[in-house]
């Protein structure tokens, strides 16, 4: 798994609440069987006009000042809806490695950590302020997982909370399947105690 320690770079505001995974990566792009190459389809229906090729000038991220942004600032309940991990794949492939929002949908939040993206939870009023600051050209932020702080180039600095174990795994880029497999004896012991009628797809 990809690690995340500290990131400094351009921040872009997406001032919308409940941005769902259907918007982050529309369904027509879920047919690929690879993990890569989804960035070109990020926010596709918002990003492009009806022809699917002309950039929509109204869409925030299409403004030239946000080209190369690595931090996304956005509204509450980001990533709600479908469990598609294509959403964090698309965000990461586009270049976003950190997200700042007041809240996230559970599955999306989980999926971010599996893909080297740090989703930071900040109070609503802080996000409102950052969304405003993000309108300034060249607005740069630093997200530091080691010290659990978010700061910007205008003097803002604030600590954030993150689950200690998730932090540990992300800092070290740990393969969590590998971690679980270390407990193979426990899994086998558990399996030996499962009742026989829990057969799954094997008829009795």
């Amino acid at each position: 798994m990809e690690s995340f320690t500290k990131l400094t770079g351009l921040a872009a505001p997406l001032d919308r609440v409940n941005a769902d995974t259907d918007q982050i990566i529309p369904k027509q792009f879920l047919k690929r069987i690879e993990r890569t190459g989804f960035g070109q389809f990020l926010f596709f229906d918002w990003r492009y006009e009806a022809d699917g090729t002309t950039p929509n000038p109204e869409f925030e991220l299409n403004q030239s000042q946000y080209a190369g942004a690595v931090v996304l600032i956005t509204g509450k309940n980001f990533g709600c809806g479908s469990s598609r991990e294509h959403a964090p794949w698309a965000l990461a492939d586009y270049g976003f490695k950190a997200i700042l929002a007041p809240s996230y949908a559970d599955i999306f939040y989980n999926n971010c950590f599996k893909n080297g993206i740090l989703p930071v939870v900040l109070p609503e009023e802080t996000i409102t302020m950052l969304l405003e600051r993000g309108k300034t050209a060249g607005y740069t932020m630093t997200v530091d997982l080691e010290n659990q702080t978010v700061s910007d180039n205008q003097g803002f600095s604030q600590p954030f909370e993150v689950d200690a174990f998730r932090r540990h795994c992300l800092l070290n880029g740990l393969d969590d399947i590998g971690l679980t497999l270390q407990h193979e004896p426990d899994i086998t012991a558990y399996e030996s105690k499962r009742p026989l009628w829990k057969r799954g797809a094997v008829a009795a």
């Binding site: 993990r35 999926n111 969590d176 497999l181």
Partner: peptide, 20 residues
Amino acid sequence: FGIGTSEVEHVLATQCLPQS
């Protein structure tokens, strides 16, 4: 409950899932 593709892989490989 629903899971992402990394977790699908996790369950395929281990039949387990770490959950808070």
